[in-house]
């Protein structure tokens, strides 16, 4: 393995596009236990701090005419509320705090991850898989609690011809269980891909002849990544809403 890694460094270029994702302990070099404060801890703590700053400190005035910070909070609140209501239905509103927690955590982590020298917590499969698994479990449990066995009607497409229904049921079942996989890898992969691409272009900046191009490309991709950070948070949340709608109203 080490030789393969060295193989990339031929030609004077040093690419370590994935080094930015290494989980390191904050203090010392000890082994990483489950409780060790790591850079994951730091950046998640910063995300919590940002959330508190925007949503608690920003809205402490309770002003009818909002300050800037308060209107940001209200904007996110209204946006998410409308999304839950429109996509998942009126009776999904009681899941709104749960969904906005996911949305805000992903949004703030994505944007914090875009800071130079930062650590993108949402680029890790471990993190996104837990988020997606939480959504998957919630949706499945809510589906069975709300609808009982009628929830299985989600897989039995009653509008299809009888002969096709078992085949469709298998396909629906597979697609149902692929959901958390694609849900988590979409988010983690997008963030990881963007950061890795920026790192690769940063590696090219070492060559003087193409460094201006490289810097321009980094700027352009950074702009794209800002867009992706917002869109992936939005997509994760809206897919959660779509899955929740399936759980609450399983009939196609």
């Amino acid at each position: 393995m080490a030789t393969e890694a060295k193989g990339e460094e031929t030609g004077g270029l040093v690419f370590h596009p994935l080094d930015q994702f290494i989980v390191k302990p904050l203090f010392g070099d000890g082994p990483i236990h489950w409780y060790t404060p790591t850079n994951v801890t730091l950046w998640m703590f910063l995300a919590v701090l940002a959330v508190i700053l925007v949503f608690v400190v920003g809205s402490r005035g309770r002003a009818v005419i909002p300050s800037r910070m308060q209107s940001v909070g209200e904007l996110i609140y209204g946006f998410t509320y409308k999304m839950v209501e429109d996509v998942a239905g009126k009776d999904a509103v009681k899941f709104f705090p749960y969904i906005i927690t996911l949305f805000i955590f992903i949004l703030f982590s994505n944007f914090l991850g875009l800071l130079p020298m930062s650590f993108a917590t949402t680029s890790h499969i471990a993190v996104t898989a837990v988020l997606a698994a939480a959504v998957f479990l919630t949706v499945t449990i809510v589906g069975f609690v709300k609808n009982g066995t009628a929830f299985l009607g989600l897989f039995w497409v009653s509008s299809a011809p009888m002969a096709l229904r078992p085949i469709l049921a298998v396909i629906e079942l597979i697609s149902y269980f692929v959901r958390p996989v694609s849900h988590s890898i979409r988010l983690g992969g997008n963030i990881m891909a963007g950061h890795a691409v920026i790192k690769v272009f940063a590696g090219f900046a070492a060559i003087a002849a193409i460094s201006p191009v490289s810097v321009l490309a980094i700027s352009a991709i950074y702009g794209l990544e800002v867009l992706v950070a917002g869109i992936q948070a939005y997509v994760f949340t809206i897919l959660t809403c779509v899955y929740l709608k399936d759980a609450l109203h399983p009939s196609h």
């Binding site: 999304m83 429109d86 996509v87 979409r186 869109i231 992936q232 939005y234 997509v235 809206i238 897919l239 779509v242």
Partner: peptide, 8 residues
């Protein structure tokens, strides 16, 4: 919303 889901 459908657009973004499709793109995703």
């Amino acid at each position: 919303a459908t657009l973004f889901i499709g793109i995703a």
